[in-house]
Design a protein around this nucleic acid. Sequence first.
DNA 1: TCAAGTTGTCTAATATCATAGACAACTTGA
DNA 2: TCAAGTTGTCTATGATATTAGACAACTTGA
Lengths: 242, 242
Amino acid sequence: MTAQDMASGVALWRQVADGIERGIANGTFAGGERLPGEMEIAETYRVNRHTVRRALAMLAERGLVRAERGSGTYVETQRLAYPLRSRTRFSEIVGAGGREPRGQLIGATEEHATRELARQLDLKTGAPLIRIEALRLADRTPICVGTTWLAAERFPGAGRIYERARSMTKVLEHYGIRDYRRASTHVTAAIVDATDAARLDLALGRPILVVDSTDIDADGTPLLTTRARFAAERVEFVIENN
Amino acid sequence: MTAQDMASGVALWRQVADGIERGIANGTFAGGERLPGEMEIAETYRVNRHTVRRALAMLAERGLVRAERGSGTYVETQRLAYPLRSRTRFSEIVGAGGREPRGQLIGATEEHATRELARQLDLKTGAPLIRIEALRLADRTPICVGTTWLAAERFPGAGRIYERARSMTKVLEHYGIRDYRRASTHVTAAIVDATDAARLDLALGRPILVVDSTDIDADGTPLLTTRARFAAERVEFVIENN
DNA sequence: TCAAGTTGTCTAATATCATAGACAACTTGA
DNA sequence: TCAAGTTGTCTATGATATTAGACAACTTGA
């Protein structure tokens, strides 16, 4: 313990915790990676192992790391802070966190509107729909799979356009819609099914967040409705109360 | 002491000191003004008077406040926090502190390069130089006098241009240099001489900080070298370690 | 299976942090 | 001059932070 540290007014364990957190934030310790052993950390910070343990306990409580007895302490895969607002796009959210957003088309098919889908899109039951299945990733980590339904009459060939653009915003732009917003958002939770588990690279039995949302244009006309399934352990919805 | 404070890892006296320092920085407590009494501060922060005293002792040691027995504790004339980075300009630093930066040309003359100046500017000994002497102030307080040397062949008439622009950045822009950066910075201390004492409005015998620096362009070619003398009691250099 | 290395959990001693009270020394204004 | 209010200094006590050592429980790879 140096004289500087003694006069700093910041506890040693806190300094160690801050240092490790910085390392996680700037990529020195990547998500899922194993941290140096407690003894090694203690030596690098010239501090007792118990002090390191206290720092790690704080980081563990905040969910940044996870200790595994006998093995080591690992950087928890960083949860994506996902604000639920009316005008944010997946790419913006991921980009804001310094990660690269990716989109991947799983498939586009045609089907007919169920009563529920018809109600949400303000169509008649049985109306032709385009169903787009897409996977969204941050860097190489799958975040969510989303199923989007659009009216086939208004958006003919939307599936092929999404395949090239890989962005629903750009698909709507192709049809001349530059301004749209979230009309409603419903969030619930479930257990992942086998299909989504494979797509999301999730173990069976893991929880997912299910988000049903409908987007409308400036006139209030429904454009599309989406059911997105998020890997709960990789995302954290943020509702801002201002 | 709340549960939050206990787990923060930051000592109470440090929190109080930071709070008072913030108050000084944002103008809640102006320079020269009397702080609330120790008892009053203790009550506002809900801590013991001794804890406040420790906070004030730290601030006093850093020169931000000065205690006067029987009277009170007063805010010392604010020291300018001056970051030593490769791309910051005097005007930006002063402006960031909410003060108005001013520059004042003392004089511009021609002279020949000494061996040392030639080495720094990558010229031959005896090469013609332009020597610009300038005073820099924050609001009405002199902060430093700087002597800048430029190669006369590359920057003909730089003195007159500085006189109008009052900014070395703008002088370089005039010669088509939009990007330049600090190549080296050397800091030492000395006692002010009579000439600089008058310019800086400093008492004789007061310490100054002497900063020798050389700026280079994007290609690494030396553009100018400067010896700046700062009134030590009005400035505090900040070196960020990240 | 075993050795080496890891995290988890005890006990213990020392240093620092924070509170509490009392009084001295000093300044200020009535 | 004097009372009120200020900072300076001392003692004392309990809580927290930090270090130190030992051992258990567990994982990993040879």
